Simulated assay, not measured.
Amino acid sequence: MSFNDEGEVSDKRGFEEEEKPEPSWVAWCERNSHPIKRHLHREERCVTRWQKPGPMKKKEWKHFFQWALRNAMPKEPPIVEVPIPCAPKYLPCARETRKMEMEALVEKMEKLSKPLERKSTPKYHSEKPFYPYSPIIVWGKPAHHDKGRPFPPPFIPCFFSNNELEDDFWASFRFKVRPAALKARPSPRILSLSKPHVKPPNPPHCPIPKKTPEPLEVPPPKRKKFTPRGWKLHQIRLIYLSKPVSRPEFEYFYM
């Protein structure tokens, strides 16, 4: 800002800014910032004679009623009859309707109206198969039913003409082995059962001394005074009373 000789303020910067041309976007903003005015062309409404303002005359009402009866009702489509083709005689549609007499029809209706008879069948008895070979292999489990045993016996001739033929027969005879037996693995229980049962000699080779029972295992005498439990309690009391009396307090103070 600078002052003239007359004391007026001269603003050179303001003149310079006014002389600058406006940018191009200012004109674009002024042109596009206003709302768009759309001029819609409205067609003139052609009013029918039923939409005329004011009441209709009696003649016009009659004409409208006749028009409504003719044009306002729904149209029914025309029924077109489709001709049925001639069906062959073996089809059910070509068969003639069965004609029954009235008495037969009544009997059939009565028969169908009654409930069906209850079917009575004899009581079913289940037969459990019998397996002659049923070993108990594992204790506490059911027996193992072997269906393949006993095996059918081999064929043996009734008699032999001489001893040589009999010896040759038994020398060449072989028993059949089941395929399952070749793959089987014996359990420890089966192995223990296969061994002979060893029993001690009876009578023993030397006399066995009698076992001396303990005090509480002595059987009660044959009398009715004590029960087995009472006799055991009596033995416990005798053992307690047979022990020496211990008086630790007396020994501590007076001995």
Rank of each mutant, 00 (worst) to 15 (best):
E117D: 12
H144W: 15
C93V: 06
S113P: 03
S126Q: 13
T97W: 09
P115C: 10
L116W: 08
P132S: 15
P85I: 02
P150N: 08
S120L: 15
S120K: 10
K119H: 06
L91Y: 05
M102Y: 08
P142F: 03
C158A: 10
L116S: 12
R118E: 06
K147E: 12
W139M: 05
K108D: 11
A94S: 02
F130M: 14
P85D: 05
A143Y: 01
K99I: 00
P152H: 13
P135G: 02
A104N: 15
F160W: 02
P92R: 14
F159S: 15
K99D: 00
I156C: 05
C86W: 15
T121A: 14
F151K: 13
H125L: 13
E110M: 13
R118D: 07
F130L: 15
K123V: 15
P150A: 13
S134D: 13
P135Q: 02
R149T: 02
P150F: 12
C158K: 10
F130T: 12
K123Y: 09
K111V: 05
K89M: 01
S126N: 08
I137G: 14
F155I: 12
Y124C: 03
E103D: 01
C86F: 11
L116D: 05
R95F: 03
K108L: 05
M100N: 04
V106G: 04
G148D: 08
K147G: 08
E96I: 06
I79S: 10
E127W: 03
P132L: 06
K89L: 07
E96F: 02
E127S: 04
P157D: 03
M102L: 09
P152S: 07
P83T: 06
F159R: 09
A87V: 03
R98H: 10
D146V: 11
K108E: 07
C93W: 08
I84W: 09
K108S: 14
F160T: 04
I136L: 13
M100D: 01
R149L: 07
P142D: 15
T121L: 13
R98Y: 03
M109F: 06
K119E: 11
G140W: 00
S161K: 14
I84Q: 12
H144N: 10
E76Y: 01
V82P: 09
M102R: 00
P132E: 10
H125M: 11
K111L: 04
V82R: 15
P88G: 01
T121D: 12
K99L: 00
P83C: 03
Y90I: 09
R149M: 11
